[in-house]
Design a protein around this nucleic acid. Structure first.
Length: 480
RNA sequence: GCUCCCGUAGUGUAGUCCGGCCAACCAUCUUGGCCUCUCGAGCCAAAGACACGGGUUCAAAUCCCGUCGGGAGCACCA
């Protein structure tokens, strides 16, 4: 048995900072504007990892409030998110939707008004912003509880149009942090919600809905990106109004992939405008797209957890993910020849063998050889054909040739220390989808027939790919 | 401008809370070498960092102050 099979991959798992708790209840709250992508994976996996480590409870909580014009809900996103979680191997115990809990938010909205801690404000967005900047209290802040309750009712009933009134919390208009001054709790939106339609027109913003739900559902730890730290203080402020205990906050910094520049909402627009085909497109870096490329969930998990819980921002190249993935798939991936952009050349000289034998896996002879027919004509990649004119190269496991004017003059069969390339005398058409979504056509060896859909293989000298379809053959490129 | 967060090798991290065992961990990258009929994998070796300046202390990556740099928030988005 080859020794690399015996290697017990027992990586000392890098410990996340410990939690000071007997019980752990956490929640992951994706906004359903698209499937989960690599950027969301940090939030998801950190939650999952903590809950698993502490044998706690993990809640999937769709943060499906109405969003904004730029950030729209996507009906298909709900299922795509679940699909991504399953693929990642995330175990969650309960599922909730913000859109199911509107009555609860309304109930507490009323309570907070009654406590004189919130008021209905009719300032325009511009005036509100301006006052916030200058620290000026507007006249609506002075209204009585009765007036506020009445106006709140008017918001719910549709007396106000979209944008005409909001419910704001009373903090302090001279609070040193301008971002903290009388934030908006609820606003009016007439947009149609994919799950509850037009049943509600007054929607909470995340600080309020979370302040309520995190308490009601007994969250012990709240993990969020550090871009949301102000929400911590907002939640605490609201909990104090109601006299509730404070769960603990954990933060992680922003994760940026060098290769990924676009946002989910941008992809949503590109997809709806037909610029790209869909969320499977590798350019979206959705979990679905990564799966297609043969990225393994355990590699992604390893990659993400490597960053720990640090609140430092990180920018990493995708090659780091590929390195992790290679660790996982190199062993399982059988090798095959694929000749991209093939050029046919005629061999000149005596062909000594009818077939060539190449191992399925160089490190595991037990998998046997694949057999390749030789012939008077062979196809080689155009790139090498052009680059190595007049030079001697080796058709791997076959013979050495000197390239000259569309011909390959055979110079011997011995294994020399020269460039070795993949070649085929015949084969089947294979298309390979590249990470930039372009499709490369080429010739694949006939032994590909022994593979199954979903197999991850390596095209020698070309890279790892996952067989997505057979007949006709369609593979998705992963990485080198 | 105001508020908050963060600064350890090219990159990502360990160590920072509870100063000494840190002349600083691991991975990746890079460079040599070995191995291999792939530009894959494996093996060996080397190179590479505590942002800066002060202070406290017998002793500071670790504590304090300042400076500089980076990020986030100041949306009726999440």
């Amino acid at each position: 048995m080859p020794e690399f099979f015996e290697e017990d991959e027992e990586k000392e798992e890098k410990a996340l900072p410990e939690l000071d708790a007997d019980e752990v209840v956490m929640r992951m709250a994706p906004y359903p504007s698209g499937p989960l992508h690599i950027g969301n994976a940090r939030m998801i996996l950190l939650n999952d990892e903590y809950v698993k480590n502490y044998d706690g409870k993990l809640i999937l909580f769709y943060d499906d409030t109405i969003g904004s014009e730029e950030k729209r809900l996507l009906p298909e996103a709900f299922d795509m998110i679940k699909e991504g979680l399953d693929w990642l191997g995330v175990d969650w115990h309960e599922t909730y939707y913000k859109s199911d809990r509107m009555d609860t938010y309304y109930e507490y909205a009323e309570k907070i008004i009654e406590k004189e801690e919130a008021y209905v404000c009719e300032c325009s967005a511009e005036r509100l912003r301006d006052n916030r900047e200058k620290g000026i209290e507007c006249e609506h802040r002075e209204k009585s509880v009765e007036e506020n309750l009445e106006d709140w009712e008017k918001m719910l009933e549709g007396v106000y149009e979209e944008g005409e009134a909001v419910l704001r919390i009373k903090t302090d208009m001279e609070h040193p942090d301008p971002a903290f001054r009388d934030r908006v709790l609820f606003r009016i939106s007439e947009r149609r919600h994919p799950r509850v339609g037009n049943e509600y027109r007054v929607w909470p913003l995340l600080e309020f809905s979370w302040a309520i739900d995190d308490h009601l559902l007994g969250m012990t730890h709240i993990l969020r990106g550090k871009d949301l730290v102000i929400e911590d203080r907002m939640e605490e402020y609201i909990w104090d109004i109601f006299g509730w205990d404070h769960p603990e906050f954990l933060h992680y910094g922003m994760l940026r992939l060098k290769e990924l520049s676009l946002s989910k909402s941008k992809f949503q627009r590109m997809i709806s405008e037909g610029d790209i085909e869909g969320w499977n497109d590798p350019r979206t870096w959705s979990l679905q797209a990564l799966r297609r490329r043969g990225i393994k969930p355990e590699a992604l998990r390893d990659f993400i957890l490597d960053f720990g819980l640090s609140s430092t921002d990180v920018e990493v190249p995708a090659s780091k993910l590929y390195a992790k993935n290679r660790e996982v798939i190199d062993e399982e991936s059988n090798r095959y020849f694929f000749v991209p952009d093939p050029v046919e050349i005629e061999l000149e000289g005596e062909i000594e063998m009818e077939e060539a034998r190449v191992p399925r896996h160089p490190d595991d002879p037990d998998r046997g050889d694949r057999i390749l027919k030789t012939g008077e004509n062979v196809f080689i990649p155009r790139e090498e054909y052009e680059e190595f004119q007049d030079e001697e190269i080796r058709l791997k496991n076959f013979c050495n040739i000197r390239l000259k004017d569309g011909k390959g003059v055979i110079t011997g069969v011995e294994n020399k220390d020269i460039l070795k390339i993949q070649w085929l005398s015949e084969g089947i058409d294979v298309k390979v989808e590249r990470p930039d979504a372009s499709v490369e056509k080429g010739l694949g060896e006939r032994n590909l027939e022994e593979t199954s859909t979903g197999d991850i293989i390596q095209f020698e000298r070309y890279g790892f790919a996952r067989i997505e379809e057979k007949d006709p053959y369609y593979a998705v490129f992963g990485h080198r």
